[in-house]
């Protein structure tokens, strides 16, 4: 990659607290790292763990989840549901080799524009230190194993009438089973 790598964070913010806090950060002209892309949901309870995995596999280097503080959820307890998912998801991602810093849950109230700034900056720095997660690149690398075979077959069969040449070759080759 010729372009200099910069961390890319996807954030899922609840409409009532954290998204509003990010708006407040804007209104207050607080300055923070430009690496975060916010996706608005009504409640942190809506955050399907699939969204987090999807973001990571599509190229995010980290995922930030923002919800209302405990007891403060606009929808009573959506934030607890996210917290519970997060606890196991974090462990599972660790088992899958993903560093814990890459997925972060923060309670940020509508008044805490400053916290948005701090958390985004902290996380950007942490992930810059970790380096890219680069899932799309990894997938491509993994897939090359298969592509090489397809190329081989093509090269082999491109030569003659197909069946004849390959038949001749396999005749010399002993294969493990069958």
């Amino acid at each position: 990659m010729s372009k200099e790598w910069k961390p890319r964070l996807v954030a899922f913010f609840c409409n009532w607290c954290t998204y509003t806090a990010a708006d407040l950060a804007g209104v207050s002209r607080l300055k923070y790292a430009p690496n975060v892309r916010v996706i608005r949901l009504m409640c942190s309870g809506r955050i399907d763990p699939q969204f987090i995995l999807e973001a990571l596999t599509k190229g995010a280097d980290g995922v930030l989840i923002g919800g209302c503080h405990p007891n403060d959820c606009h929808y009573v307890e959506g934030n607890y549901k996210m917290l519970r998912r997060f606890q196991l998801l974090k462990r599972m991602l660790g088992d899958m080799g993903i560093e814990p810093e890459r997925v972060r849950l923060e309670w940020i109230s509508a008044a805490e524009g400053e916290k948005v700034r701090r958390v985004v900056n902290e996380m950007t720095e942490q992930i810059a230190n970790l380096g890219p997660l680069g899932m799309p690149g990894r997938f491509a690398e993994w897939d090359r194993e298969v592509e090489s075979l397809a190329a081989q077959i093509e090269a082999r069969e491109g030569g003659g009438c197909g069946c004849g040449s390959s038949g001749a070759e396999t005749a010399e080759k002993e294969v493990a089973h069958v």
Binding site: M42, C43, G45, R46, D48, H74, Y75, G78, K81
Partner: peptide, 19 residues
């Protein structure tokens, strides 16, 4: 419209309008 049930439905059978 919080969508908590949608995010939790294990067979993906709940839909939230707009989200």
């Amino acid at each position: 419209g919080c969508g908590t049930c949608v995010g939790s439905c294990p067979s993906g059978s709940i839909v939230q309008n707009l989200f």
